[in-house]
Amino acid sequence: MGNSQSPPAANHRFTSASRAFTPKELEDLKSLFTSLAAQSQSNGQYISSSVFQAYFGLKGPLGGRMFDLATQGRKDDKLTFEDLVITKGTYEKGTKDEIEEFIYQLLDVTNDENLTRSDLDSVLVSMFDHIFHLKGSELESSSHCYMVNTFLNAATFSKDHEGYNDKSMSFEDFKSWCTLVPSVKKFLASLLVPPDPGRSGSQVPKFQHLDNIDSTVLLLRDEYAWHIGGAISQEELEEWKLLYHSALNGLSFNTFLGNVSNHDEPTVLIIKDREGYIFGGYASQPWERHSNFYGDMKSFLFQLYPKASIFRPTGANNNLQWQSRICSVL
């Protein structure tokens, strides 16, 4: 006779999650678990929080929250092989909704089912520390707060909670925010792979310009490049070259056209107006004179300050890119 009791729910989740992996992938996961469990000095039984976070390059509240989710909130500092398979099965192999739900829970670093502006602030601080390797100087700290606020300003908090004065971010608010800041979602969706400079969501384009240019006149700071890069392919994040700057090349539209039209590659245009707003667009096609609109759906507009947002084409029409002798449109 068999056991009449049903196995724990976690076992059902493990069985279901295992089906998302090939035998080779499961074998690799087992090898990884064995290695990290040995480092945890657990006789091969579990991975400790410190070893888990060190291997995946996770720090601060984001690392602690990821380990808490991976261990089903047991608070025992023990990540089992079953935990690892279930977590990666959901986080990496799940449906779009399952992955987004996991990331939404991940952002709730205080684990109070109330995703607040303070939670997002903590996560963004941890992210920027990882991506831009902040050193903690007063100047860098000021720049850091400036960028955190631009990303927070794009977020909506519409969910009421009894007993709380401030509203929190609903799941729908979160999904809307991710469409505006795809770089954030890319980073948060790739945390369970070993960290390296090419990890999705971590790559910052290298900006090429003349050495004698005063960096204070350049609008494209690293954080802006990272934000824009979240909406384009990984191959286009290697190196960006300055083609035109009004402070260096003069306020001539013909000069601008001449400089950007000589390159058969996508371009990024950044503008700062008199009010201090910074915005622009990404043109996926070279700038050429056409009698009609041209381009493709890879083009988009963006805002960099006072809030960071990406605006993709709606598909309502094909009015994406256009250039004539006297003006250009994106």
Results as ranks from 00 to 15, higher is better:
Glu98Cys: 13
Gly2Asn: 15
Gln39Leu: 14
Tyr164Met: 04
Asn153Asp: 15
Asn43Phe: 13
Asn3Thr: 13
Thr15His: 15
Leu107Thr: 00
Leu330Ala: 05
Tyr164Asn: 09
Asp222Tyr: 01
Tyr224Leu: 04
Gln72Leu: 10
Ala154Val: 09
Lys307Ala: 07
Gly281Tyr: 02
Pro182Gly: 00
Phe151Ser: 06
Gly198Asp: 14
Gln285Trp: 00
Ser142Arg: 15
Ser6Val: 11
Asp121Trp: 06
Asp129Gly: 15
Glu138Val: 15
Thr34Val: 12
Val85Thr: 15
Phe56Thr: 08
Trp287Thr: 00
Thr216Ile: 05
Arg221Trp: 04
Asp214Pro: 07
Thr71Glu: 09
Tyr164Val: 07
Gly2His: 13
Glu235Met: 12
Thr179Ser: 10
Thr110Phe: 02
Glu113Ser: 08
Gly280Tyr: 03
Ser6Thr: 08
Asp77Leu: 04
Gln234His: 12
Tyr244Trp: 07
Arg117Ile: 06
Gly57Tyr: 03
Thr95Leu: 02
Gly136Glu: 13
Ile232Thr: 14
Gly44Cys: 13
Ala189Cys: 00
Lys272Arg: 03
Asp108Leu: 07
Val184Ala: 03
Tyr294Trp: 02
Ile47Gln: 11
Val204Ala: 00
Ser200Thr: 07
Gln39Asn: 02
Leu134Ala: 11
Thr267Glu: 03
Pro8Leu: 04
Tyr277Arg: 05
Leu180Cys: 06
Leu301Ala: 14
Gly44His: 03
Val148Phe: 03
Lys175Cys: 14
Thr87Gln: 11
Val193Trp: 11
Asp97Val: 13
Glu239Leu: 15
Ala37Trp: 03
Ile47Tyr: 05
Leu210His: 08
